[in-house]
Simulated assay, not measured.
Amino acid sequence: MTRTTSPFRAPHDYYPTPPGGTRALLSVERFSGAIWEPACGEGAISKVLAAHGYQVVSTDLIDRGFGTGGVNFLAEQTSRARNIITNPPYGSGLADAFVRHALCLVQPTGGSVAMLLNLASLAHPMRHAQWVRRPPTSLYVLDELTCWPNGIERGFAAEHRYCWAVWRPDHVGRPSLWWLSTSVQM
């Protein structure tokens, strides 16, 4: 997958997730079975999941020295674990593609999907039909989370607000909405 990157975006949309973001999710959600983190980067989410007792399969398109590099999630035909949890790349519609593909991959496993998304993405008119057709089970709005590109502070990244969108198998109806603190210690 070759893409041109905006000068205002980190290469390959690499924005590591601070541990508090994943701990916040785990303060309210439990996952049965192994978890695949398909955009693992240097392991920010994977390490928190493993520290909480989950078996984690970590892959990424780019080899950053953690997990298995060179794996194009969007080209995978089967899920590598029952559940999928990630902070997907956002540029060029990739977050939408990750959500759709993850939901397809976990359908045979009966697993769940959790995606860290830009809160503004929930209100985008191009996504309306997708979200209404397949709404998440739960949306968790994070109080404060900044995913700095490669650890380098840039102003635009601080302007984003994030939420976890969680899809459970066989969910029907509207999602629940709740607020989470990223300062939770577990």
Rank of each mutant, 00 (worst) to 15 (best):
L177A: 09
E29A: 12
S27A: 14
V71R: 14
L49C: 08
A114G: 06
W148L: 12
L177P: 00
Y15E: 07
G53F: 07
E29I: 04
I62P: 05
P136D: 01
G20T: 03
E37L: 02
W148F: 10
H124I: 01
G33E: 05
S58R: 00
D143G: 15
L122N: 08
H101Q: 10
S46K: 11
N83S: 07
G33T: 02
R100V: 15
E37N: 09
S181C: 04
P18H: 03
A51Q: 14
G21H: 02
I45A: 07
L103G: 12
F156D: 14
A120F: 04
S138M: 01
P88W: 03
L49E: 13
H171S: 04
G43K: 11
T137R: 13
R161V: 00
R64E: 12
G91A: 15
P169K: 04
G67Y: 01
R174I: 00
R174A: 14
H12E: 12
L116A: 05
E153T: 15
P89T: 03
L25M: 05
V99D: 06
H101V: 00
H124A: 12
E76R: 15
Q185H: 05
N118R: 15
W36N: 13
F73L: 06
S112A: 15
G20P: 03
E37Y: 03
G21A: 03
I45S: 05
Y54E: 14
R100T: 12
T86G: 02
P38K: 04
T137G: 02
E42R: 15
W167N: 01
L139T: 08
E42N: 11
V99T: 13
I62W: 12
L116N: 00
S176M: 02
A123N: 10
T109Q: 11
P89D: 03
R168Y: 10
D96T: 13
G111H: 02
Y140M: 13
T146R: 13
V56E: 12
S183M: 07
L25S: 10
W131N: 12
F31V: 13
R80T: 00
Y90K: 00
R168I: 13
A10N: 06
H101C: 04
N118E: 13
D60F: 10
A51L: 06
D96V: 12
A102F: 07
E42S: 11
L180D: 06
A157C: 11
E76W: 04
N83L: 07
L25I: 07
A75H: 10
T4A: 12
V71K: 13
